[in-house]
Write a protein that binds this DNA or RNA. Structure first.
Lengths: 249, 249
DNA sequence: AAATCATTGTGTAAAAATAACACTTTACAA
DNA sequence: TTGTAAAGTGTTATTTTTACACAATGATTT
């Protein structure tokens, strides 16, 4: 690839000569095992939760692990992450986004494994823990310790990503039921951002955005005055392309 | 890894059994060639530029390519990206950040190659194009067509990333000389965001942030009243941890 | 030396967004 | 019927953002 590269070979790029056999070039590259790891967030009892499984590695015997798997041959990373989600939660159509790739050579005890972290948000109520998977549990994000591999670092990165992202994009709704009260929505933001917000200003803000549809329905099962239930108007939102412009460090 | 996985093997995870040989497990994973690709931005003549090289693949004979290389065995991806930068630009200490990983199986004609995109910002004046690399050129971001591989997509992703990032973090200064005038700074923002800004408000904004150090020096070589030169106070900035909180879709 | 030119540098007022803050209403439970 | 817990609602002060115009400066030209 460059003149002084020790691993240079006949297929490497050289000024002035073109490579005709792309396949041969690619075959000369080192190959690395790739996994995807999903940081699956849920929201329950006013706490942000994350879905973890006990590590299946002897050396991480009592540690918790993100849900992941290797990427299959010719499998898109997004597809691999969806596959993991489907296998573990039984859910389709889950919010999923790539966050960051981690490459520390010593991050896996079995040798170099590169992992691509995904952040996923789902409604915890739609998800039935499989009985067979009794090592699969929801954990309060605040109480997590003892994670396998570099999964703490990955989780931290995804959590920070979520905190930022939720303020600029309407993804939080994926953590709630389709119909939700404003109180639930505010609890969600307060839990994720770990701050308290003024209830009146919070409502004003969301009503002003004008993406909440009043369903006409009310909360049920609450031991006090029930609140109205709303839906987020995703179609309207996606038509409304917002211009972003405001420098602020 | 899961009960119904067709590629399951003796090392796969199974409920209730622990894997003792991590190395063997990892060896069972498919391996993929990994590259890094650097989207190197520069700023010159009030335009945002990107550093490209002619593709060395026969089939992309007349196309432009990002600067990249495969990741070496046990090489951190960040290190690989720094290495590419150093080799191509001769520069150290360049701003660099991972943006996104691209995995389309058909993105490389030589077979599956995963690439991790990095965004890099440098002061174009500090960089001398090597004579030997006469296929290495700065291109105005607005005029780029005919890129090899999926490099247009990668560039677009990095450009969008930059537009967003520059509004929230002080990275733009990496594109300017150490000492710069407010006019240069504004031109930079206007070029990157592709908008016009009010000069007075722009100044007010930056002065209010209070991270600009007045060097006491003035522009030179301008055919009109010279502007003051400023430096960005990175140390002060990094001590000032800003709290981010404002929902806005 | 004077005039011209291009750009720097500066302030204010109106508008919009945000933050602070308290009481009445409602449904359920006792 | 009363008590309780949360829903629902409006105003004011503060801050931030926007819009907008003219005098000062240094270099260049005449």
């Amino acid at each position: 690839m460059k003149k002084d590269d020790p691993v240079m070979n006949e297929n490497s790029q050289m000024t002035g000569s073109l490579i005709s056999d792309a396949r041969k070039l690619v075959q000369s590259y080192p190959r690395v095992p790739i996994t995807v790891d999903c940081v699956i967030f849920g929201f329950d009892e006013n706490e942000l939760k994350i879905l973890l499984i006990r590590s299946d590695l002897e050396m991480f015997r009592d540690k918790w692990s993100l849900l992941g798997d290797f990427a299959g041959d010719n499998e898109l990373l997004d597809d691999a992450a969806y596959r993991v989600l489907k296998e573990r939660t039984g859910m389709d159509d889950v919010y999923l986004e790539q966050v960051k790739t981690f490459s520390r050579p010593d991050r896996h005890p079995g040798g170099r494994v590169l992992t691509v972290a995904y952040c996923s948000l789902l409604n915890i109520e739609h998800h039935q823990l499989k009985k067979m998977d009794n090592e699969l549990h929801w954990h309060s994000v605040k109480n997590i310790t003892d994670m396998a591999f570099d999964h703490q670092e990955i989780m931290d990165a995804c959590y920070a990503w979520l905190q930022k992202r939720i303020q600029e994009h309407p993804l939080g709704f994926n953590l709630l039921p389709e119909k939700f009260s404003l109180r639930e929505l505010q609890n969600l933001y307060e839990a994720i951002l770990d701050i308290k917000m003024d209830r009146r200003n919070f409502r004003k803000k969301f009503f002003a955005m004008d993406f909440l549809i009043d369903t006409g329905e009310y909360e049920d099962d609450v031991p006090h005055r029930p609140g109205k239930l709303y839906q987020f108007d995703f179609p309207k939102y996606s038509q409304t392309k917002k211009k972003w412009s405001g420098i602020d460090f």
